[in-house]
Write a protein that binds this DNA or RNA. Structure first.
Lengths: 206, 206
DNA sequence: GTCTATAATTTGATAGAC
DNA sequence: GTCTATCAAATTATAGAC
C-alpha cells in the first residue's frame, strides 16, 4: 500500500473498473489507458493485447468474489449463527463490489467458447471452498434435524440468490420500488439482511 | 403467423437473438444480417443505424418479460394459490427466455446515460402492472394476517430473486453444483418450483 | 426493396524516438 | 519504460445499380 503504484498495478486497477462496468467488448483500450493515467501503448507493453489483459482481470475479479468467506462455515457455531454471519458478510462483500456478480455472469454466458479455458482453469485452483463447505454445512444440519430434508443445492441457490439478486437488479428495482438510492439505500440493505435471514430460517426449519 | 414474414420482422427476430446473446457491443451487424438471411444494407434501410435497431429490440424484450402475469394477482384465490401459480408460470416464462433477465440487467447497468431515455419511456407505458399488483397483494395478505408483517418490497425481491437467480447464474451453478444440463436440468427446475414455494410460504407465514 | 461495392470510422496493435 | 505517430483490421454506414 505504498504511495507509488507500479504501472502494471495502475493498469490492472483501471482495467478492472472499466471491464467490469462495460464488459469485454464495451470496454475500449483507450478508455482504460485514460483511466490508468498512462498511454495506450503501455497496455500492450505490459499485457501484449486486449484479450490477455481481459483474462487477467477476469481471473482477479473471480477470485475476489469466490476466494473468501468459506471460513464462516468451518466453525462450531449453530446453523442459525453461521447463516446470519454469512448473509451479513456476504451482503457486505457484494455491496462493496456491486457490479461484479453481473459482470461474471454476463461474461460467462456471453463469452461462450473463448472464455471456457479461463473459467475452467480458475475452477481448478480450488477457489471453490465456498459452495462446497456451504453445502456440506447444510447437509450436516439436515442430518442433525435442524433443517427440513430439502435438496441442499436448492437451499444454497435460494440463499445466494436472495443476497445477490437485489444488487444485480438494483437499477430496475430501485425505480420499480421507489427506493431512493442516496437516502434510503443503506437502510434498505440493512433491513434486507435481517429479513432474508428471517425468511430463510423460518422457511427451512422443521 | 403467416408463412411469409416481412423483412422487417425477420430482422427484428434475428436482432433480438443476437443482441440478447452478445449484448449491444458484442453483436455485429453482419452477424444479425446473416441470421436474418438478408443483406447488411437492409438493416440500415429499415432501422437507419445500429443504435436504433438496438433500441427497438430492447423495447420489445423488455415488454416481453414485464408485460404479462399480473393477472394472476387479480383473482380471488388464497395467497398460497396465487403464489404457487405465479412461481409456476413465471419460472416457465423465464426458462423459455432464459437469457433475457441477464440481458436487461446487463444493458441497463452498462448503458448508463444513453439507455436511460429508452428505459424511462418504457416505464411510462404502464407495463408495470406486475410489481404493483404483486406488492399490493402482499400488503393485503399482511393485513388479513396471512403473512407476517414484513416489508412487502423485501418479500417481492426475495420471491423474484428466488425464481430468476437460478437462470441468470446457471452457467456457473451447473458447474459448481454438478447439474447435468442435458439430463437433470428439467427435473431440477421442476423441483425448484416446489421448494421455492415451500420455503417462501413457510418463511413468511405467521 | 434488395443487392454489391465502397467509403468512413472506430479501435486494436506496432514502430521507433527518447 | 514511456511516449507520439502511424498502421492494419474490423465494423458501421452509404452510394448507386437493378
Amino acid at each position: 500500500m505504498n504511495g507509488k503504484e507500479s504501472t502494471e498495478q495502475k493498469i490492472l486497477k483501471a482495467a478492472m473498473v472499466i471491464f467490469v462496468q462495460k464488459g469485454r467488448h464495451g470496454a475500449k483500450m483507450q478508455e482504460i489507458a485514460d483511466a490508468a493515467g498512462i498511454n495506450k501503448a503501455m497496455l500492450h507493453y505490459y499485457f501484449r493485447n486486449k484479450e490477455k489483459l481481459y483474462a487477467k482481470v477476469f481471473h482477479n475479479v473471480f477470485a475476489k468474489i469466490f476466494g473468501s468467506l468459506h471460513k464462516i462455515f468451518e466453525t462450531d457455531e449453530s446453523f442459525e449463527n453461521k447463516l446470519t454471519n454469512f448473509i451479513d458478510q456476504y451482503t457486505r462483500l457484494i455491496a462493496e463490489n456491486q457490479q461484479i456478480p453481473l459482470f461474471i455472469m454476463r461474461e460467462i454466458s456471453e463469452g461462450a467458447e473463448e472464455l471456457k479455458p479461463i473459467f475452467n482453469e480458475i475452477l481448478e485452483e480450488k477457489k471453490f471452498a465456498l459452495p462446497i463447505t456451504f453445502i456440506e454445512t447444510i447437509n450436516n444440519s439436515i442430518q442433525k434435524g435442524e433443517i427440513r430434508k430439502i435438496d441442499s443445492r436448492q437451499i444454497f441457490i435460494t440463499i445466494i440468490g436472495s443476497v445477490v439478486f437485489y444488487f444485480i437488479a438494483e437499477p430496475i428495482l430501485s425505480v420499480l420500488l421507489k427506493v431512493d438510492p442516496d437516502f434510503q439505500r443503506e437502510n434498505f440493505i440493512e433491513e434486507r439482511k435481517i429479513i432474508v435471514v428471517d425468511i430463510i430460517l423460518n422457511g427451512i426449519k422443521p
